[in-house]
Design a protein around this nucleic acid. Structure first.
Length: 443
RNA sequence: CGGAACGUAGCGCAGCCUGGUAGCGCACUUGUCUGGGGGGCAAGUGGUCGCGGGUUCAAAUCCCGCCGUUCCGACCA
């Protein structure tokens, strides 16, 4: 917990909620992100993150980071601005098209705002790594990227500027590359599961980048962008309880998960699922991650080679692994909301508890609420305290909109030492003693 | 990039067709009553009508150009 967590009083914070929906927001996550004061648009597809939205972004980022680290990937940070030279070497400078934001610096040098980092990481790697003994390696960073989409839309789900985790693996041979791929496969399943999402890997085209071992990770959300079909057993999977470790042979694990049928609308072939068509779950999904092996696509033209055991130079076998971090904020809301607002899964919630003081003009009651606030903080629970002098209705509406997992209401029950505790997701609520509330929320 | 809309107060909108003092709701400020699901009363603040040009005695309104934003399609983490 950071020191600033001790001063999360709504009267001093910055959460500009909106009662009405801005016209430009068409889909639910975009509407809610604006209404709940998470972001503001500054240009088409470009957003400023306000305090509450930034906390969520950081939470997601941290989970991604932890799971990457657990898989043995090493964090680096590459620049947003790149030189065109590297892209000319790989041949993508011409190929990329108008999506790439091209910039000319004062010396008339061609630069670009990076849409991805294969070239740069390959360059960094080839300069330093000369022997197979230093393999395997997987380097990742979490950085802002820019793709000049023709038509940005859906808020942060398809912005032009976006925060992305991208990892790049380097191996001596295919067997090693496959192992690296499998580790990321596991890491991805764990990452999304930790965020409270049902994520399903689906076989994917490797697209413009090339390659043949490729999966998209799609999270299920009724309002998702594409229709998906999947085996009902998907809903029984839990990657967090499979008991596998990154050091294990992951082949059986990957086979288990890739063995269950799942396909997007465009890939779906009726009758190919191995079970009755009617038994398939039909829903919608949002792509939040993509992993793929692309072999020597960049290492070969860019001369990224190491000496193999036999003394010959070998082009590096590579793969890359992306997660749309900023997109996840929108995707999670698509997957978890109701008419009143956002419902944050606890691991990514900006605060765990929203504490409402309905008696701000009553010194004794306020003391009780402030005490509870301090005790929760001291117990390591992040709390947002609504100490504003607002009508109860406005406070409840804002709290529901913001969507913190637990709401604690200090009101007329305080005289008897009681508060109301509400679960945002289930709507379940009840009056319990302050001590019991403290117990419940810190356990 | 093809097709289509929209731009008037912080937000949501009316006014434009048929040119003549720029409006409504919410928000905001002050006072007051109120106090468990966006409250009432009273008094206020706030707008170069996206920008530029043209027509006209007169333009938010009509005409031309530009900019911005959004929607549908093709494209994508």
């Amino acid at each position: 917990m950071t020191p600033q967590d001790f001063f999360m009083r709504l009267s001093q914070y910055f959460i500009p909620t909106l009662k009405e929906t801005p016209t430009e927001a068409q889909i639910v996550s975009h509407r809610l992100m604006l209404r709940a004061g998470l972001v503001r648009q500054t240009s088409a597809g470009i957003y400023a993150w306000l305090p509450l939205g930034l906390r969520v972004l950081r939470k997601i980022e941290q989970i991604v980071r932890e799971e990457q680290n657990a898989a043995g990937a090493l964090e680096v940070l590459m620049p947003t601005i790149q030189s065109a030279d590297l892209w000319k070497q790989s041949g993508r400078y011409e190929a990329y098209g108008k999506e790439m934001l091209r910039i000319v610096d004062r010396h008339e040098r061609e630069m670009l705002y990076g849409p991805t980092n294969e070239e740069m990481i390959t360059d960094l790697f080839r300069r330093e790594i000369k022997t197979y003994r230093d393999l395997p390696k997987n380097l990742y960073h979490i950085q802002w990227k820019f793709r000049d989409e023709v038509r940005p839309r859906f808020g942060v789900m398809r912005g032009r500027e976006f925060l992305m985790k991208d990892a790049y693996s380097f191996d001596l041979d295919y067997a090693g590359a496959k192992k690296s791929y499998q580790k990321m496969f596991l890491a991805y399943l764990r990452t999304f599961a930790r965020m409270g999402l049902q994520a399903i890997p689906m076989r994917a085209d490797s697209g413009a980048i090339g390659g043949d071992l490729s999966h998209e990770f799609i999270i299920l959300a009724e309002t998702g962008e594409s229709a998906v079909f999947c085996h009902p057993d998907w809903l029984k999977t839990d990657p967090l309880r499979d008991g596998v470790s990154h050091d294990d042979d992951l082949e059986p694990f990957v086979n288990k998960y890739t063995g269950l049928y799942a396909a997007t609308d465009e890939k779906h072939k009726p009758g190919s699922a191995g079970i009755a068509e009617e038994a398939l779950i039909k829903t919608r999904g949002i792509e939040v991650g993509h992993i793929f092996y692309f072999g020597i696509k960049y290492s070969k033209p860019m001369g990224a080679e190491v000496k193999g055991p036999d003394g010959n130079n070998v082009a590096l076998e590579m793969g890359s692994y992306g997660i749309g971090v900023s997109r996840l904020v929108g995707a999670i809301i698509e997957a978890s909301h109701d008419d009143a607002g956002i419902i944050w899964p606890e691991p990514v919630a900006p605060f765990k508890v929203g504490l409402i003081n309905l008696k701000t003009n009553d010194a004794v009651a306020t003391k009780q609420v402030d005490d509870l606030y301090a005790k929760l903080q001291n117990a390591g629970v992040s709390v947002l305290l609504d100490d504003r002098d607002e009508r109860p209705g406005a406070k409840f509406a804002d709290m529901d909109l913001i969507g913190l997992p637990w709401h604690v209401v200090g009101g007329r029950g305080l005289e008897k030492g009681m508060v109301e505790v509400k679960n945002r997701k289930t709507g379940e609520r009840g009056e319990i003693s302050i001590d019991a509330a403290l117990q419940k929320l810190t356990s």
